[in-house]
């Protein structure tokens, strides 16, 4: 269940620097995928003021769509396309049927309605695909390892994920700051009545933003699904980590989501690597391993608590 990047697939070298660099790359890979999740959440919150617990379900929908299409056609590119289309379609449908009734409601209603959507999505997926996990294979062209400068061997697929994540980050920054849609999104964040008065079809804009966030979640689900199993309930642990990312970065800020996601990804991966060793300096081996791993599992939440004490509105959140 734990959404944690697996140890690197590189050679079984005992050199600790190599292990360390591998784990940094794993942390980056984990971080950029968290960013892709958190970006959709923070956009939806920033523009529509909506807290969406069902974002993790859209991640799951993307992964299942990819696994089903890859199983039927054998093409990974088609699988990714299916993930994007299925998640965006499910997102648009849910926005039209349910979500748009929630914009003016209290957060409590939003939490409950989207919790209800999780139940419906999860049980619906279980009904369609069964309780057993599906497997999505890494395509042949991307499997195997590459040798990085310094002789480090690292999984090509994970490097590609990092590249795609950084590409999406660049695309979103460009979209928000340079395009007409981005201008409307930013205007919607600051004054929704005004942009409606200026003739922008606000409900179409909301559906579009929601579907965009959903598509990103679905893509993340498909990409991560190839290195983990695709199963019901896979989305919610990631969703909660994406919340931690948003709390750290500040609600509504894409930049905050990016910085927060990398912090959470690196803290989680490196904490698991370094903490047991740290406790071994002054404790016996077994106790150090259990204390270290128990504390490592809490480390990102401790990071969140520290940020909260220091800046309750998050690193890049609006000053209140």
């Amino acid at each position: 269940m734990r959404y944690r990047a697996a140890p690197g697939t590189g050679g079984a070298s005992t050199l600790t620097t190599i292990l360390f660099i591998e784990q940094v790359l794993n942390g980056l890979q984990f971080g950029v995928m968290l960013f892709v999740m958190a970006a959709g959440l923070t956009l939806v919150f920033g523009v529509m003021g909506l807290i969406n617990l069902a974002h993790g379900s859209l991640y799951m929908v993307g992964a299942f769509a990819a696994a089903a299409v890859a199983g039927a056609t054998g093409s990974f590119v088609l699988a990714l396309g299916a993930a994007l289309a299925a998640a965006a379609g499910a997102g648009a449908l849910v926005e039209l049927l349910v979500i748009r009734r929630l914009y003016d409601r209290e957060h409590l209603d939003q939490v409950l309605a989207t919790f209800a959507l999780i139940l419906i999505f999860s049980e619906g997926t279980r009904w369609m695909f069964g309780s057993f996990p599906l497997y999505l294979d890494i395509p042949d062209a991307l499997s195997g390892v590459v040798t990085l400068p310094g002789g480090i061997q690292y999984s090509l697929y994970r490097l590609v994920i990092i590249g795609i994540g950084l590409g999406i980050a660049g695309f979103l920054f460009w979209l928000i700051s340079r395009t007409r849609l981005g201008i409307r999104i930013r205007a919607g964040e600051s004054d929704r009545e005004m942009i409606a008065a200026l003739g922008v079809d606000i409900s179409k804009l909301y559906t579009l933003v929601f579907a965009l966030g959903a598509a990103l979640a679905g893509l993340a689900g498909a990409l991560v699904g190839a290195i983990q199993s695709v199963q019901v309930g896979m989305g919610e642990p990631v969703l909660i980590l994406a919340f931690v990312v948003i709390v750290i970065g500040g609600i509504g800020s894409i930049k905050g989501a990016f910085v927060g996601a990398l912090m959470v990804g690196l803290t989680d991966t490196l904490g698991g690597l370094l903490l047991p060793g740290f406790f071994r300096l002054f404790m016996e081996n077994a106790a150090a391993t259990s204390t270290g791993s128990a504390l490592a599992s809490m480390l990102i939440y401790i990071l969140m608590a520290v940020v909260l004490v220091w800046r309750p509105q998050g690193l890049f959140g609006p000053q209140t």
């Binding site: 807290i51 957060h107 642990p237 709390v247 259990s290 791993s293 599992s297």
Partner: peptide, 19 residues
Amino acid sequence: YFIMITLAFGQMLYFFAIS
């Protein structure tokens, strides 16, 4: 923020209990 943070602290104890 409050909703997300309470959810996150709950999850923290969940992972602590597991590990």
